[in-house]
């Protein structure tokens, strides 16, 4: 589904290398987790994948379902099935959540040459999805993320994911700022969306999210590289011993 080959990335403003040759292949339907200490380049990877400005790719390639995506605009990557659940979902005052979701959905459909959904059909769909994810309809009427609690913001991300039905979901520290109950709700939402046609890349500091979203593979990232890959047991090792052992091992 997603294939990253020797990806090297610098900050645009200063020639500081953040990603120093990432290789990663994610099969269709699988869940990969990336863990790593602060400053290891985890969030940068999610931004580069989704096409945020401010980064310069100096080497490597990224393919989504066999197609290179690094030359595409963010909205084109989105329409091709890439979704990023933000660590800090952005507030858009005055824009109703419903309007935002409908605009996003129809933009993607238009891009793919599909018919736009009517207001009525969209309403039906969004209500259905919200119900499945146990999201209060009230949240749909409020402006995008404005005045939302940390948990509500993250659940709103999952709702968007459910509606847009992406092929490749990148979750950037979705557990940050959540208490245990909120985290469980979010994880349940993600688990409900697991499907053989959909892959996940879960970026997190802590093992605890991975108790709820069980990964098939775990990668440890440090200083812009993946230093170790393994199964779910690798996450437990980090939980018990921290990153220092792993870092020492590599050096």
């Amino acid at each position: 589904m997603l294939k990253i080959t020797n990806l090297k990335v610098e900050l645009e403003e200063e020639s500081k290398e953040i990603l120093k040759g990432i290789n990663l292949e994610i099969e269709s339907g699988s869940v990969h987790a990336i863990m790593g200490p602060n400053g290891s380049g985890k969030s940068t990877l999610s931004y580069v994948l989704s096409g945020k400005k401010g980064y310069k790719v100096t080497n490597g390639e990224v393919e989504l379902a066999g197609e290179p995506i690094l030359e595409l605009e963010p909205e084109e990557r989105a329409a091709s099935g890439l979704f990023l659940a933000f660590q800090y979902p952005v507030e858009i005052p005055g824009v109703g959540n419903m309007t935002f979701l409908r605009t996003a959905m129809n933009s993607q459909r238009k891009f793919r040459g599909e018919a736009e959904l009517s207001a009525a059909d969209f309403l039906k769909l969004v209500r259905e999805k919200a119900k499945e994810l146990k999201i209060d309809a009230e949240m749909l009427k409020r402006p995008v993320n404005v005045g939302f609690s940390g948990g509500e913001k993250k659940r709103n991300e999952i709702l968007q994911m459910a509606l847009l039905e992406p092929k490749m979901c990148v979750l950037d520290e979705t557990d940050s700022g959540l208490d245990v109950d909120a985290m469980k709700l979010v994880a349940d939402g993600v688990n409900a969306l697991r499907d053989k046609g959909r892959s996940f890349l879960v970026i997190t500091h802590y093992q605890r999210l991975l108790d709820h979203i069980k990964p098939d593979f775990v990668h440890i990232m440090a200083d812009g590289r993946i230093i170790k890959s393994g199964g779910p047991e690798l996450a437990l090792q980090v939980e018990n011993n921290g990153y220092s052992d792993l870092l020492a091992e590599v050096q």
């Binding site: 963010p74 909205e75 989105a78 933000f86 979902p89 935002f100 996003a104 993607q108």
Partner: peptide, 21 residues
Amino acid sequence: FYCRQRGVNEEDAVALVVNGF
């Protein structure tokens, strides 16, 4: 960027944000 990541092109994203304002 948030709007664009959801599939909205840049001009529509500006219009969306400004209309909200």
